[in-house]
Write a protein that binds this DNA or RNA. Sequence first.
DNA 1: ATAGATGATTGCAT
DNA 2: ATGCAATCATCTAT
Length: 480
Amino acid sequence: MPVGVAEGWAWPDGGASRRCGRGPAGRWAWPGRWAWPRGPVVCAPPSAAMEDPSRLMAPHGAGVTLQGGLPPGGPTAPTATPGDPSAVPPPGPPPHDTGDVLQQIMAITDQSLDEAQARKHALNCHRMKPALFSVLCEIKEKTVLSIRGIQEEDPPDAQLMRLDNMLLAEGVSGPEKRGRGAPMAVAATPGGCPNDNSIEHSDYRAKLSQIRQIYHSELEKYEQACSEFTTHVMNLLREQSRTRPISPKEIERMVNIIHGKFSTIQMQLKQSTCEAVMILRSRFLDARRKRRNFSKQATEVLNEYFYSHLSNPYPSEEAKEELAKKGGITVSQVSNWFGNKRIRYKKNMGKFQEEANIYAAKTAVDATNVVAQGNRANSPSTPNSASSGSFKMTNSGDSFINLQSLTSYQSSPVGGNVQSQMDSLHHVIHQAGRYDTIVGNPLYTTQRIDANGSWQDATTPSSITSPAGDPGSVNSDASN
DNA sequence: ATAGATGATTGCAT
DNA sequence: ATGCAATCATCTAT
């Protein structure tokens, strides 16, 4: 069961937020200072600090990670020649070879700032500097090539696309849907009257708008942070490009990496937002949670039909549509209602006796009016029900024979309606004849439902004639 | 607060 | 696809 929506409307605590570095205050914040969590930002050996090593070798490092440092002995340095002691000023003994120069460079970080500055200056003026720098360039080139092979451009992320589509469909991203913030699904939700859930709709809209607001605010923060960080790194790289070889392409790649990292975080935000929307939907749109009892009118209409077609309470699709229209409910609700009604009636017929009597009498009056006046009855037509002749009437009622005359109406335009009243009349007649047996002795028990529990009588009355055009339906199953 | 009523859903059978 | 049976979740009367 989803948590955190109704109760205080909190974002689902799904770990993703934590992975994004969401602070304890619930705000999305970059963890710590502008330091890249892992991985190389600068792929350069320490010997890069030639022109202005202080930029790179400063004690505080500015988040620069050194990778692929040279071995203590330094590279084989084919271009290097034995050093010239005279070129290196104090402090420290003059380097006699490339190894010594490199040792000095490596040791520079352990020195004090002043010492380091002096050493730096000395190294910068070293006659071997151009040679070492070219070696550095060579190594750099190789490193870049190897990296280039590893990281190719990511394929368009299908999941991200799905998330984007969903957020767009839900109205979280994209242009705001004024006045209709709630998606169509709300209106299409089966159940309940179309007008009685405006409160829920507005509530839904409010929550969705809240999600939307949070989403956009966080997204904006991400974009801002991304751009700030990108600028920061680019400035850093530009500065460093004066001390080591950094191509524009490299900077571009770095920017791409940063954007990639941020888009991962964005995707997590989108995922969280989608989760929140789903929870919201399940909260508000789950029909079970929104169950409303049908209006009196709807119940009346349904019951009228049910009890007037007790021998075969299976309304056709047409009849269902008509009932739905009359009751102001959906067709599927009509189906549900009949499903429930049949099973509950069958389970406990005694309980429904009174109700059955009321509706039977009511419908019987209508039927007699129909017969007398030749007018249309109120009940919907029933193509696959009693009027179709696809069910068997009982022969247990002696007075039922009197109703046979009514069947002659079946071939007339109002015949279906007349036939649909027969159950009611039948019921009333039975009630008059055996009133003493009503209580605790449901009238329809043996007549409508057989021992197997199916909606069918045990025998077929020879007195009933099937309507024209349906000669083979005498013994057909009531339930399809 | 509770039990019963009721509309909806689910799994299965046909 | 439709109906049955069991069940769920909510509504309503007490």
